[in-house]
Write a protein that binds this DNA or RNA. Structure first.
Length: 674
DNA sequence: GTTGATTCAAGTCA
DNA sequence: CTGACTTGAATCAA
């Protein structure tokens, strides 16, 4: 029923949807590669997308369209820099460009008006156009480095990276996903050797060295492809997607040209969350300048008006937009911290304050630009709900699962009057046609207490190809044809890390009414990439008793080959000298299992399809050994901010199914049918 | 489980 | 080109 309703047309997304799915962005032609093979430098193939990239500035004045709106702007249609800026500002980055490494040349070095290839600083200064503000448009002008995206390293195509990007969002997601995959794999290897070598920094270093990054070069204003509400768990993530360059420092700044003058201005700050005063006012932020603490000695001294502090001071006068990343203590994250991109702010005032150590420090009050959708505010709201579910208003059912799930699954309808989904019987389990005892048994390990990575005697580790599939934090490292969790036959305890999905749901979900796709599923908690989400519960359909009338059943799960984004979720092994685990659509082998959640099921039956999903399915075994009928478990494809609709790829039309439906996912890479 | 001290760090600017 | 500058993340002890 609900999936059937997905085909009603409708132009708008949910108000709370964190992703603006529609955009007017031009499609980039698939980039070509150029192989520059130098003996002294690693052979590199660089691909450069051709096309206009957004200025970054201006998004604040187009709140109705979200960050992508500016992307459609051409060189002559820039918007004023935000509603509150009456003063013409003309800014040109001066020291914004990383010097191109020797041996690496972008393919397209032509000089488009507002898109510049990377050149050396001296070259750039020499040819900086003097007429940037000549059109009197009151607009803000930038020259931006042309982003370089690579999917080749050492002359080899990296299977885990897309061959082309049609939007900055895709590029950012691919870079971010690659970072996370590398980080998980390094963590897995470190844990195998029982050492800690900062997998985040290691993954970041590989990304930097391979130049797999987005938005290289600095810019004032939005970072294309990074959306308000996007969440991060490591500072390096901000670095490689070009949101905030310093890997440690809190203030990112650059030198920019303002009319006839030149100034250093702040472009992004990370507010570590140490100064959270007013909980309800998420639109203002008091930020402290940096410095004053000597790392070596215990000495403290007054902060100086230089570097980042000076840039903030200049930004106060220049009134330029500053990206703000807010850090919060996240009780659910192991490191205890989560970073949320909260959009653009402007500095209102600055002052000096004497700290408790008796030193002078600079303070800056920042005001969030109006008209932007909520970022950190959503997180604060959902954190309250998690602590006390009754603070969640407009609930039409308090617990769809009637207590069957760890946490209540509420139902909300904020768009129309439908009182809830049609009747079904709630179950958290998948029901097999035959009893488990009659199915093939799963072999077990003899580990005492818990299985440990690197234990060559652990049969379960061997069964999974040598490594335990989950990190100590319970995050899946890599997609595989099947994951073997520890089960009944194992000697290890329930605390074993190789029992992630069988322990069930650990997040707070809600079923909500979408504007045009029936009911959907979203989560109050931020979910990190690789985290377990839920099982597809329902009845396993016995293929010996084929139900010919299942065309009426919109709740059937089948292992249809998903799109590229799902298939490429792996560890990026080529980057660290490991063999590719990529399975192409040609090689993809569907399983015979079919699960129907029409009569019985859990909340996963409300998860909608998207061609650009944030969730993927993964076969998992733990209570039987019939590899053709595994459990279907869902995991997060990337970090998912709270209240973002959860979607997975139902699969490519024509591959193993004769039913197809018009897709309303709105993704730019939408295949049209599923 | 939570908190504080301790240690080792990456990228960028000057 | 090198060092100074910035503080995060992980671990271990209390």
């Amino acid at each position: 029923m609900d999936r059937a309703r997905n085909f009603m047309p409708g132009p708008n997304q949910e108000l709370l949807d964190a992703k603006p799915l529609r955009s007017l962005a031009p499609m980039f032609p698939a980039p070509m590669g150029v192989n520059i093979n130098q003996s002294s430098t690693p052979p590199l193939v660089v691909v450069t997308p051709v096309g206009q990239f957004p200025t970054g500035f201006g998004a604040g004045s187009l709140p109705a369209f979200g960050p992508f709106a500016s992307f459609s702007a051409t060189a002559n249609t820039f918007s004023p820099a935000g509603t509150s800026a009456n003063v013409p500002i003309d800014v040109t980055p001066v020291s914004a460009y990383k010097t191109r490494p020797s041996g690496v040349t972008p393919l397209n070095d032509d000089d488009e008006p507002y898109s510049v290839a990377q050149t050396s600083a001296s070259e750039r200064k020499a040819k900086r156009p003097a007429d940037l503000a000549a059109d009197g448009s009151n607009g803000v002008k930038f020259k931006h480095p042309k982003p370089i995206y690579k999917n080749h390293v050492a002359g080899k195509l990296l299977a885990f990276l897309p061959t082309s990007y049609s939007t900055p969002r895709e590029a950012v997601e691919a870079v971010h996903m690659t970072f996370e995959a590398l980080r998980r794999r390094h963590l897995q290897m470190d844990e195998t050797q029982d050492v800690s070598r900062r997998a985040d920094l290691k993954a970041g270093a590989i990304m930097m060295a391979s130049e797999i990054r987005a938005n290289a070069g600095k810019r004032v204003g939005t970072a294309p492809g990074v959306e308000i509400g996007d969440i991060f768990y490591f500072r390096m993530e901000l670095c490689i997607i070009g949101l905030h360059a310093p890997s440690m420092g809190g203030i990112d700044y650059m030198s920019a040209k303002f009319g006839n003058g030149e100034d250093s201005v702040a472009i992004c700050i990370v507010a570590a969350g140490g100064y959270e005063n007013d909980d309800d006012d998420t639109d203002t932020l008091v930020y402290s300048g940096s410095g004053g603490n000597s790392r070596i000695t215990e000495e403290r001294h007054d902060q100086k008006l230089e570097r980042g502090n000076l840039a903030l001071e200049r930004s106060l006068h220049r009134k330029n937009e500053i990206r703000v990343v807010r850090g919060f203590k996240d009780p659910a994250a192991l490191a205890g911290k989560i970073y949320i991109y909260d959009g653009l702010y402007r500095i209102q005032e600055s002052w000096k304050e004497r700290t408790k150590f008796g030193i002078n420090c600079f303070k800056y009050r920042l005001q969030r630009e109006p008209g932007q959708r909520d970022g950190a505010a959503i997180w604060k709201r959902t954190q309250r709900w998690i602590q006390n579910a009754s603070t969640r208003g407009t609930v039409i059912q308090h617990d769809l699962s009637s207590g069957a799930e760890t946490f209540p699954v509420c139902v909300v309808n904020e768009v129309e009057h439908e009182k809830g989904p049609g009747h079904f019987t709630y179950t958290t389990q998948v029901k097999y046609p035959r009893p488990l005892s009659s199915m093939k048994a799963l072999q077990g390990c003899g580990c005492q207490s818990v299985c440990l990575p690197g234990d060559a005697n652990c049969a379960c580790g061997q069964h999974n190809g040598g490594d335990l599939p989950y990190s100590s934090a319970g995050v899946l490292v890599c997609r595989k044809p099947v994951i073997y969790e520890c089960g009944e036959a194992c000697h290890c305890s329930l605390n074993c890390r190789n029992r992630v999905s069988q322990k069930g749901v650990r997040c707070h979900f809600e079923v909500f009414r979408t504007t045009n796709r029936g009911w959907g599923l979203r989560c109050w908690d931020p979910i990190r990439a690789g985290a377990f989400i839920c099982e597809y519960a329902g009845e396993v359909i016995d293929e010996l008793q084929v139900n010919l009338d299942d065309s009426e059943d919109d709740y059937i799960f089948q292992t249809v080959c998903p799109g590229e984004k799902t298939l490429k979720w792996n560890s990026g092994p080529e980057l660290i000298g490991e063999e590719s685990t990529y399975v192409s659509p040609d090689e993809f082998q569907p399983l015979p299992i079919k699960i129907s959640a029409k009569q019985i099921g859990n909340f996963s039956r409300f998860m909608n399809h998207s061609c650009s999903p944030n969730v993927f399915w993964q076969p998992v075994q733990y209570d039987h050994g019939d590899d053709k009928h595994p459990h279907i478990m869902f995991f997060a494809l990337n970090h998912i901010p709270p209240m973002t609709e959860l979607t997975y790829d139902y699969g490519v039309v024509g591959a193993g199914t004769n039913r197809s439906k018009t897709c309303l996912c709105g993704s730019l890479t939408c295949r049209g049918l599923f």
